[in-house]
Nucleic acid binder design. Structure first.
Length: 723
DNA sequence: ACGTGTTGGCTTTTT
DNA sequence: GCCAACACGT
């Protein structure tokens, strides 16, 4: 391969990073600065120039999508398979290590992965078993506590409770939860990382093996690493035998709330020998106006590593800010802008609506629907997280490893086979007394004849079902196992008996699961596992797509978090108001406020050509009308980068201090309505026009409704009919 | 054991 | 305002 190919088409800084000598390196890569490209070319360079075998390279990402994309790009660049290279997510790689060294990690060979939903259910069961009130010990908080401690590398015995009763109890719950996981051979997400870390810490020879093997380590999105991930990398790369390149952007750190620690970038510079820093600041994505606006916003944060994006591209259009009357008006405005974008000959896919929280999507959806524009929403339930799929996986997990208590609880009475709460607590009690799995307890109770009547029959039939499924499907292809599990368990019949579209979709999903089994190829590194076990691990680690990929041309809708790493020619950021974005929850804590600002920065830098920022002066939130002011992030944009879109050109007020609404009565006639006229609205019924603003199609009319009080409604959206 | 009324609670999300 | 989770009633 001609090595110059790896350096052509790169700018100076990119080239510097790709062709750097082997040393520890921090690449500060701004949004849209070609970071993936640098990573891919660097890996190719290491192989071609430094003669490092793919076998000796470890590349770590945060999402499966990123890992897949990177592998694909390297393979197409190098034109050969890179299957010996370890490339994956932290969790995926930790899983791989634990499978390979399960004995040393203290895990059974067929351990299973507990996803967040499983974990939540298990915690609730533990709380019940410990006789603790959920009101006092919210399961979500317990879950957060357990994962938080695991992310810090802490086991229950390491936690200093300061003799605080609450702290002690929390620690006890953590300990009880962990015991239950260990007994059932279950590993949650945080546990994967913690165990992998402990595996190396306790087995120096295993650690030495990997230190020697991985001569080059590369980490993407380093600003998102949490402390246990950092410690794991540090352990691997601290001997000086290998080098690590980390790529990240402190300004795009938006996952602090789930344990990510931006400080890890700073710590890297201190903890790893002779680190070099390279800044990628040339942006290939956005217009200079958008960059200027985004730079100005992020500049309000303190303690940045410092970086200013620039482009030699066009200045482009101004950032447009629109103040909607309410969220309906905001949505209507966005839709009208997308329509004119469409009329200019652009596809819908080039446009994206980004919002702070998912609840915002509904109004936007309705507005798009109303105008017949197709949209695609990202986020929400993934395939393997769906109820019916988890039910089916529960049976497969029981076949794989019947001592899996989480799976047992899920399927023992789904579909209902007459196991009452009483029988179940009997089984749980027995399991606790014998310190065994629910499965063992069930068998024990049957053998002892301790149950009678309906309960005995029900439990007996469940045991029989699992045993038969296990025997009937042993050695069978995966899809046979899944198909039999779904049908013989009565799961399929259960959803068949349910009526409605939802049940129909569930049946289709179950069929889809069988198809997924058929198409599943056991990955090379999992060749010692049974296909079933490998599939179950795959289902937990890769929850699958949110929606089946549709080729339909559609507006892209997602939260700003989800949009990180993506780009769109036309971007709308909706709900950019104090209280929404920054979120009310931020509570003016400086650290959290800065993370919100980074989120704003991420959102703005998604836009390539045109950025709209919108907000609503009044918004129905949790059933109440809230009156918000424009977000501070809007005010932080330099005036020369912004144009305020006004419905009425004659009224123009600065963005910065507008909150009050207009009450002028000028040119009311143009609206086609008259004061005191009776108008109807499909949702609110009949009312009387009291007030208005604007003219023509875009008039805003205040209508008094006898029952509902007075509201501002936007004619164009609300479709008030003159009567 | 299952179906209906009432209460509460509520960012962001990947693995 | 909406959804999920519990309580209660049949």
């Amino acid at each position: 391969m001609d090595v110059s190919l790896l350096l052509d088409d790169l700018n100076d800084k990119q080239r510097e990073a790709v062709a750097a000598p082997q040393t520890n390196m921090l690449v500060l890569a701004g949004a849209g600065s070609g970071k993936t490209r640098v990573l891919v070319h660097r890996i190719a360079w290491l192989m071609e120039v430094e003669n490092i075998a793919p076998f000796s390279i470890l590349a770590v990402t945060f999402t499966n999508k990123a890992a897949k994309e990177m592998r694909g790009r390297i393979e197409s660049l190098m034109k050969r398979s890179m299957h010996t290279m370890w490339m994956g997510t932290f969790h995926g790689l930790a899983h791989r290590l634990l499978r390979a060294h399960h004995a040393e990690a203290g895990l059974p060979e067929n351990f299973q992965i507990l996803d967040s939903d499983d974990q939540y259910r298990l915690i609730r069961r533990i709380l019940k078993a410990m006789n603790l009130d959920e009101k006092h010990w919210p399961p979500r908080q317990v879950q957060w506590y357990i994962n938080g401690n695991k992310d810090e590398g802490l086991r229950p015995q390491h936690i200093d409770t300061h003799n605080d009763h609450t702290q002690q109890k929390m620690r006890d719950i953590y300990a009880a939860y962990q015991e239950s996981c260990d007994r059932s051979g279950l590993v949650d997400f945080a546990e994967l990382l913690l165990r992998a870390h402990e595996l190396w810490a306790r087995n120096p020879e295993i650690l030495a093996h990997y230190q020697k093997r991985f001569r080059a380590v590369l980490v993407d999105e380093f600003q998102d690493t949490n402390n246990i991930q950092y410690a794991w990398l540090r352990m691997l790369c601290s001997t000086g035998d290998n080098t690590i390149m980390i790529v990240g952007d402190d300004d795009q750190s938006i996952y602090g709330w789930r344990g990510a620690n931006v400080d890890n970038i700073h710590k890297f510079l201190k903890d790893f020998p002779k680190p070099e820093t390279i800044r990628l600041e040339q942006n290939y994505r956005s217009t200079s106006t958008i960059l200027k606006a985004a730079n100005a916003v992020i500049d309000n944060n303190t303690g940045r590593l410092g970086k200013e994006l620039w482009t030699d591209g066009a200045e482009g259009e101004l950032v447009s800010v629109y103040a909607g009357f309410n969220e309906l008006d905001e949505a209507r405005f966005i839709v009208s802008q997308i329509k004119s974008w469409l009329q200019q000959g652009h596809p819908l896919t080039e446009s994206a609506i980004l919002y702070r929280n998912n609840a915002q999507s509904r109004v936007l959806e309705e507005a798009l629907l109303h105008e017949g524009l197709a949209y695609r929403i990202y986020g929400g339930l993934r395939f393997f997280e769906r109820q019916e799929i988890k039910d089916a996986l529960g049976y497969l997990r029981m076949i794989n490893h019947p001592h899996d208590d989480a799976a047992y609880e899920r399927v023992v009475n789904t579909p209902s086979r007459g196991m009452g709460e009483k029988t179940l607590s009997n089984i749980r009690e027995t399991a606790r007394a014998h310190n065994c799995s629910l499965w063992q307890a069930s068998n024990l109770l049957i053998a002892e004849g301790a149950l009678k009547g309906r309960a005995a029959n029900a439990l007996q039939s469940f045991i029989l079902l699992i045993t038969e499924l296990e025997q009937a499907t042993e050695g069978q292809p995966l899809e046979e196992q899944a198909d039999k599990a779904i049908r013989q368990s009565g799961l399929y019949a259960m959803y068949q008996a349910e009526k409605g579209e939802k049940a129909q979709a569930r049946l289709e999903n179950l069929e889809e699961l069988v198809t997924a089994c058929k198409q599943f190829v056991v990955p090379e590194e999992a060749d010692e596992m049974t296909p079933l076990s490998a599939f179950l691990a795959h289902a937990s680690l890769e929850a699958g797509e949110t929606q089946a990929d549709s080729d339909q041309d559609a507006v892209q809708m997602m939260t700003i978090h989800t949009a990180k790493g993506l780009e769109f020619p036309l971007v709308f950021m909706a709900g950019v108001e104090e209280g929404m974005f920054p979120s009310q929850m931020t509570n003016d804590e400086p650290g959290r406020m800065e993370e919100e600002r980074r989120l704003a920065y991420v959102g703005m830098t998604r836009a390539m050509k045109k950025l709209f920022i919108t907000y609503a002066e009044s918004r129905r939130l949790y059933g109440q009308d809230k009156y918000h002011t424009a977000s501070r992030f809007i005010r932080e944009i330099p005036a020369e980068c912004v144009e305020e879109v006004r419905l009425k050109s004659t009224v123009s007020r600065p963005v910065h201090n507008r909150f009050s609404r207009a009450t002028s009565h000028e040119s009311f006639e143009q609206t086609g309505f008259q004061l005191g006229q009776r108008v109807t609205h499909r949702k609110f019924g009949e009312g009387i026009v009291l007030n208005y603003e604007g003219s023509g199609d875009h008039a805003r009319v205040q209508v008094n409704f006898d029952e509902f009080g007075s509201k501002w409604l936007v004619l164009a959206y609300a479709k008030l009919q003159p009567t």
